Computed example of a mutant assay.
Amino acid sequence: MAIAPQDNSAFMREVDEEVRKEQAVQFWERWGKWIAGLVIVGLAAFGGWLYWSNQQTVAAESETEQLAQLLEDLNAGTTADVDETLAALAESRRPIIRAEAMLTQAALALQNQNEPAAIGIFGSIAADDGLPQQFRDLALIRQTAVEFEDMEPQAVIDRMAGLAVPGNPWFGSAAELSAVAMMRQGNEEQAGALFAQIANDESVPETLRTRAVQMAGVLGVDAVPDEPVELEEEQTVPGQPVAADTAEEPST
Rank of each mutant, 00 (worst) to 15 (best):
A164H: 10
G167D: 12
Q133S: 14
D158Y: 01
T104L: 12
G167A: 13
A139L: 04
N114A: 13
P116Y: 06
I125Y: 05
A99C: 03
P116N: 06
G167P: 00
A118N: 04
E115Y: 06
N168I: 09
V165P: 06
I157S: 04
G172I: 05
L110E: 15
S92C: 11
P116R: 07
G172P: 02
D129Y: 09
P132W: 12
M102D: 05
S124H: 07
G162T: 12
A161T: 07
G167Y: 11
T104D: 08
Q134I: 13
A155G: 07
Q134H: 12
A117I: 05
V146P: 04
E149Q: 13
V146S: 05
D137E: 14
I96Y: 00
L108N: 05
A101C: 06
E149G: 10
M102Y: 03
F171H: 10
L108S: 07
S92N: 08
Q105I: 04
I121D: 10
E91M: 10
P169G: 08
R93S: 15
I96A: 07
R159E: 14
Q134A: 14
A127Q: 14
A155H: 05
G130Q: 14
A161Y: 03
E147M: 12
L131I: 04
A139Y: 06
G123Y: 04
E152H: 13
E100P: 00
L110C: 04
S92D: 08
T144P: 10
R142Y: 02
L108C: 09
D137H: 10
L163D: 02
I96L: 05
Q105W: 03
A117Q: 08
R159F: 02
D129W: 04
F135M: 07
Q105P: 00
I119F: 01
I121K: 08
P95F: 10
T85F: 13
A107P: 00
E100F: 00
V165Q: 15
D137K: 08
L163R: 01
P95M: 10
T85K: 15
Q134P: 00
Q143V: 03
I125P: 00
F148V: 03
R136Y: 04
L110Y: 00
G120W: 02
L86F: 13
Q105M: 14
P95G: 10
G123L: 10
G120E: 15
A139G: 06
E91H: 10
M160D: 09
R142A: 02
L163K: 01
V146I: 11
G167L: 14
A155E: 14
G162E: 14
W170C: 02
I121F: 11
A139H: 03
M151A: 08
M160S: 10
R142C: 00
P166V: 11
Q113D: 14
D158I: 08
L110K: 08
A106M: 06
G172V: 07
Q111W: 04
L138W: 05
Q113Y: 02
A155C: 06
I119H: 01
L108P: 06
